[in-house]
């Protein structure tokens, strides 16, 4: 079902529990690199839990438990010798609501490189900030106001700023958790265009509520339902010719 692109993540029997409740059950999935993979499904289907498996954000939740095997480029990211902090340096994440730190635009973007010691000189840091802002399509709008407080930007700009913040640590993967849900249609369109551009460099996994959005921007789509991966296929095929009746029902709007 998956063609020539190399595999970035491969998950085997991945389950996620929060306390006693099971959010994800025995998911097997192979996510191709330099590609956009969309995770869709009704609320509570486990798509966000699956997303958080890839950068071990579930570790932060005190009663969360992840079982199974997840490999990134063949390395088991849940192995005991893997530091989740370093994993997250390679797997960036953009959340539903942009949360810029209450500091300047520049400081927001420079945050990651400073943490990981990516820039030895000020000039290099400036370069990194500029490059990240350019890739996030924000440079032209903020280049004259790098020292202004980031929370003063519009929500659309904020969302691109946090994207730039993730890009600044030079990740391989960008996870997006419903990144457009707090944006207006114009800002959404800009973000989608940006994702289209970024997928030439990065492996992008996006959780979305909107089937239309998944259909527009993704190359592969996974449909989850009640914690199980029902179907994973090329987007075109999944939307035109779903193999499972539940997928069919969901994309035709019969539930969800």
């Amino acid at each position: 079902m998956v063609e020539d692109k190399p595999i970035k993540f491969s998950g085997r029997c991945v389950s996620v529990h929060y306390g006693a409740s099971r959010a994800l059950h025995n998911v097997d999935i192979d996510i191709p690199d330099r590609n956009v993979t969309a995770l869709i499904g009704p609320s509570g289907c486990g798509k966000s839990s699956l997303l958080r498996v890839f950068n071990r954000m579930n570790d932060v939740i005190s009663n969360a438990r992840v079982t199974g095997e997840v490999r990134m480029d063949g390395i088991d990211i849940y192995a005991p010798d893997v530091d989740p902090v370093l994993l997250r340096a390679r797997v960036g994440m953009v959340f539903q609501k942009p949360a810029p730190f209450p500091r300047s635009v520049y400081e927001n973007v420079a945050y990651g490189p400073r943490l990981h010691g990516l820039a030895r000189t000020k000039a290099r840091l400036d370069m990194l900030v500029e490059r990240s802002l350019r890739r996030a399509g924000l440079w032209d709008e903020v280049k004259d106001r790098l020292s202004m407080p980031a929370p003063g930007l519009s929500v659309g700009q904020q969302q691109r700023l946090v994207l730039a913040r993730s890009l600044a640590i030079d990740p391989d993967v960008i996870l997006m958790d419903e990144p457009a849900s707090s944006l207006d249609p114009i800002a959404t369109a800009r973000l989608e265009a940006l994702i289209e551009e970024l997928k030439t460099r990065y492996c992008i996994i996006i959780v979305t509520h909107s089937m239309a959005q998944a259909a527009r921007i993704s190359d592969h789509t996974a449909f989850l339902h009640k914690g199980e991966l029902i179907e994973f296929d090329q987007t075109e095929r999944l939307f035109t010719n779903p193999a499972d009746i539940r997928t069919q029902d969901y994309i035709t709007g019969r539930f969800g």
């Binding site: 960036g92 209450p102 945050y111 943490l115």
Partner: peptide, 23 residues
Amino acid sequence: SLRNSSTALGATRSETLKRVVFR
């Protein structure tokens, strides 16, 4: 959300506390 953002950028807990929460 600020803490989560910082964690997702690869900050340790104390780094998040010192650089984001304190600030």
